[in-house]
């Protein structure tokens, strides 16, 4: 994916120019490779968490993410300048998942008992358990509500969410509110009703 600059054609000695270009391309590729590895390791879990909020077919999800990262690498020279390259990765992976139309429809047709188990009534002991339980509930929500909710937890702003997911700006807030309501209801149905701490969860994750 070495871009040929218009000025390159003006260099009189093609062999030399060719060589220089190749060296430059090699240098760039090495740089991009390194950048991309760092980007992947830093962003992979974020993307995975967001997609898992509504897609419970992990295999399909991993395939889609893998493809998206590969495409991201192919276009890294452009994407690396984006405000947040992960937005592009999420959009790409999500499109791939949504386009697997038949497969998704069959998935959705599965009986409810195939859905992942939801946490039991005992208090959740650790973060992992909490996250799994939460994911179980999220996957029972309408897909849009779940992904909007998860993205906002990951620190994306309403406008960013609207743009990444292709939603109207005005919808994001409503989806978030609806998601939280439904989660509360699911939690209560599972027996989680009494608040230990009265503090509200105001701030978002903020790791970004």
């Amino acid at each position: 994916m070495s871009a040929v600059d218009g000025s390159a054609a003006l260099i009189p000695q093609p062999d030399e120019g060719e060589e220089a270009r190749r060296a430059e391309a090699g240098r760039l590729k090495k740089k991009y490779d390194e950048e991309f590895v760092v980007f992947t390791e830093q962003s992979y879990h974020l993307a995975e968490r967001i997609l898992r909020a509504w897609c419970w077919n992990r295999e399909a999800l991993e395939d889609a993410l893998h493809e998206a990262y590969l495409h991201g690498r192919v276009q890294w020279s452009k994407i690396r300048d984006y405000r947040d390259p992960i937005a592009w990765i999420i959009t790409t992976a999500r499109n791939k998942l949504l386009n697997e139309h038949d497969r998704r429809q069959r998935e959705a047709a599965m009986p409810p008992e195939v859905l992942p188990p939801v946490g039991t009534q005992s208090d959740l002991a650790d973060a992992w358990e909490a996250q799994e339980t939460l994911r179980g509930w999220l996957q029972q929500l309408p897909a849009r509500h779940a992904e909007v909710f998860q993205m906002s937890r990951e620190g994306f702003s309403n406008q960013e969410i609207a743009r990444i997911l292709g939603l109207a700006d005005s919808s994001v807030r409503s989806y978030k509110v609806a998601a939280r309501q439904q989660l509360r209801q699911l939690a209560e149905e599972a027996g989680y009703t009494d608040s230990k701490s009265r503090r509200r969860l105001g701030s978002t994750r903020g790791h970004r």
Partner: peptide, 17 residues
């Protein structure tokens, strides 16, 4: 334990090795 507690607890988790 209610949904807010669970959300806070879930936040705390860092990716495992």
């Amino acid at each position: 334990m209610d949904i807010d507690d669970i959300l806070v607890l879930a936040e705390a988790r860092e990716p495992s090795s």
